[in-house]
Design a protein around this nucleic acid. Structure first.
Lengths: 101, 101
DNA sequence: AAGATTTGGTTTATAAAATAAACCGATTTA
DNA sequence: TAAATCGGTTTATTTTATAAACCAAATCTT
C-alpha cells in the first residue's frame, strides 16, 4: 500500500511564478491593452528581459501580442487572453494557500 | 533632469519568491517548530532540494536550524526567526500589489 | 551475522530560468 | 553626415532550482 502521505501545497504555475511575468499579467489584467513601452516603464524591466518574458507568455497563450506601426515607429500591443485570465486567477488562488488570505 | 518615470512594482524578496522556500516559511510561520522530515512530507520536496533551500533560509537568518539526535537518529529542527517573520510579512504585502488583495 | 533496505540527510552535477550584453534597423537630432 | 535615440530581438552569461549520487548509521531479512 502507498503510505506516502499528503502533500499540503499545490504547485504554483511556474509560468506565473516569475516576478516580471507576474507584473506583466498584473498590468494586463486591469487594462484592455498595453504596449511594450508602457509595460517596460511600469515594470522597470530591461527591454531584453521584457521581450523574452512577453514571448513566453505569448507562447503559452496567456497573452496575445499584436505588432503594428504607429506611423513609422513599431508598436507592440499586448492583451491578456481568457486562458491567461483564468491561469492568473488560479495562481492567485493557489498562492493563498502559501501566504494565507 | 531624470525623467525616468515611476516603476509601479516593488521588487519581491527573491529569497522568498521560490516555491519551496515559500512553502517552508508558510509552515514555519504557523507552527513553533518543525523538523526536516515533517517539512519534507508536507512539501513533497526531495531531501536534496529541501536541504539546499533550508540552508539558504538559514544563512539569511530567516530560520534557525538545530541539529539534535532523537536517540541515535539525527533530527533537524527548524524555527522561523523574527527577521524571517517580518520578511514574510513584507513579501505578502508586496505580493498584493501584483495579485490584488 | 552478513547482506540488503531504509532513514536522514549532504554534496555535486545538470537543467532551467533570469538577466545582461550585444546587436539591428529605422528615426531623429546636432 | 555623423552621432544619439527608439523599439525592439537575439545571444551569451549568470543565477537558481532540481535531480542524481552519495554517505553514515540504523534496522530489517534470511
Amino acid at each position: 500500500m502507498d503510505q506516502s502521505g499528503n502533500i499540503a501545497f499545490k504547485p504554483l504555475d511556474p509560468l506565473l511564478h516569475s516576478e516580471l511575468r507576474l507584473a506583466v499579467m498584473s498590468i494586463l489584467i486591469t487594462v484592455t491593452e498595453a504596449d511594450f513601452v508602457y509595460i517596460r516603464k511600469q515594470t522597470g524591466a530591461t527591454a531584453g528581459n521584457l521581450s523574452v518574458q512577453v514571448d513566453k507568455l505569448s507562447q503559452a497563450e496567456y497573452i496575445e501580442v499584436e505588432k503594428t506601426f504607429n506611423g513609422k515607429i513599431p508598436r507592440t500591443i499586448c492583451r491578456i487572453t481568457e486562458k491567461g485570465r483564468s491561469a492568473f486567477a488560479e495562481y492567485v488562488d493557489t498562492l493563498r494557500q502559501y501566504i494565507g488570505h
